[in-house]
Nucleic acid binder design. Sequence first.
DNA 1: TATTGTTATACTCTATAACTATA
DNA 2: TATAGTTATAGAGTATAACAATA
Lengths: 157, 157
Amino acid sequence: MTPEITVLDRLLEVSELFQKDMARAFDGTPLTPSRTRLLWELAATGPSTQHALASRLEVSPRNITGLVDALEAGGYVTRSPHPSDRRAIIVSLTVSAQGMMHDMQREHAELSAELLGAVAPADRAALLRGVEAISGRLRELIAADAERQARNQAVGE
Amino acid sequence: MTPEITVLDRLLEVSELFQKDMARAFDGTPLTPSRTRLLWELAATGPSTQHALASRLEVSPRNITGLVDALEAGGYVTRSPHPSDRRAIIVSLTVSAQGMMHDMQREHAELSAELLGAVAPADRAALLRGVEAISGRLRELIAADAERQARNQAVGE
DNA sequence: TATTGTTATACTCTATAACTATA
DNA sequence: TATAGTTATAGAGTATAACAATA
């Protein structure tokens, strides 16, 4: 049990706690993590086609249909025709959902500040650098593995 | 957009990448994140009743029934009677699953070392302290909120 | 009377495949 | 022929409530 293992486990613990905190925020509303993620994406990038949402969230178009159905029924988003492509549908946040997402972004920023406030000032820069380094390395590992798998598949065919 | 926000977002990014990495590991097996989590728990604490698993994983007993059904069918766990309580069932890892979990724990440790290796040596101690501080503060916030909600519920009754 | 696990029921998330309308 | 979205179908995770067996 080296201290090296602990860092990783702590990171996973933080992410678990985070999800618990997010889920708790929507008790009593029809919002779920997946639906909230779609709203968050819409708030960040503006009105989008369902196809664009499927690409950006990396889920199937069918999945987007279901999520948008629920959000539309709840009054969070509206569907409108695409101005030039009659196959496509534009999904937009309603005015009230825009306000809600604004509040949510503010709360997110406040939580960030609150949590960083718990870190010793002298440790903050190193923490940022460290987490960035870990994130970058993880990306590399995942990319390398995806490439390896693609090669294997090509061989298998 | 202050750098403070970035730390939190990076942490969330790391957790997302992690989940992607975990999921990828079981392509082609009947193992899913939830089932793996149950196996991980069994490997850590040894044979347990379903009730104990439900408590430790913080899910419903019904959910455990389904997960154990699938893992039993796949040859990962066995159900056996409790020696003194005839209502209860003991769930244990099979020998092959024990070996698999052993490998998984080793890979987990290797990944930890690999990721920490990407962090500048001078930053490692501060990173650990920082992540622990954030984890602790998050726990406090969640506990405080749970208490507040419990109070509200009591008033509502 | 309380506890352990299961059956019944229901909702959400997710995917693939077939299909319609449009490009 | 290709693309955008929906319907059909299916599996997984999850929860609550009712129930059986046992404590």
